[in-house]
Amino acid sequence: MDIEKFVYELAVRANTILRRDVLNLINKAYLEERKIQPKKTLKVILDNALCAYKNRIALCQDTGLPLVFLECGKDVKVDYILIKRVSKALERAYRKEGFRASTVTPFNFYKPRFNPDIFHIEFTNRYGLRITIFPKGFGSENKSALKMFNPTVSQQEISEFIVDAVRRAGPSACPPFFIGVGIGGTADYALLLAKKALLERVDRDGRNEDITRWEKDLLKRINSLGIGPMGLGGNFTALCVKIKLYPTHIAGLPVGVNISCHSLRSATATIRI
């Protein structure tokens, strides 16, 4: 298949079809919530997904900055031309499908563009090119948080920082949230890890049992904040916390928090080229 057509379809899928794992958690919350207004809001979120799918329009008018993650297998040659083709396809998808041009140069807000060309490229031992399109809206991106802890910090202090980041995000970042946490690396890398955590399946536990226990404890604490869908209260301020770890320096412990709104959108597929 032609890579430009492939990227085009991924961009449409990411913006108009809510991820199955995301839908699963929203549906579960809808069934469990008892308070009237939060329950109604969760129902509207489900209706919204159906409406977007049926009419092939964006789940949210903020079609984000379309971030690109490339995992290049050992048979794939990545060069400038390939990157330009991906970039062009993404722009064409946004223009033709009517996804919002939300990209501007700082201090120059005229004539917004579609695509800022933000690529994250990794090399893997697999075959093929695995492409992820992640439209990241800024209602929630604006609530990102980073803290450089001492290496001797307790898990408890890190938990407080994460819960506080969610509290500060409040009702305007479109709860119920999905919370990505990156621990380790450098300042920038911790935040990238946090973002990548949101690309993992959110309705399934990870392999590390200690981390899973921590994630569940954090989710419980976040949900006791009582912000709830649209800030209307209830039991679901967040639907999932995902933590990713990475080696770091002996002198520090960076912790990044990346928040996603309830409309956590991404599409991933592998192409053989």
Partner: peptide, 13 residues
């Protein structure tokens, strides 16, 4: 007024 946040497709109707 508030309206349903993150539900742009629903509101389009």
């Amino acid at each position: 007024f508030l309206t349903y946040a993150g539900c742009g497709a629903y509101l389009w109707q």
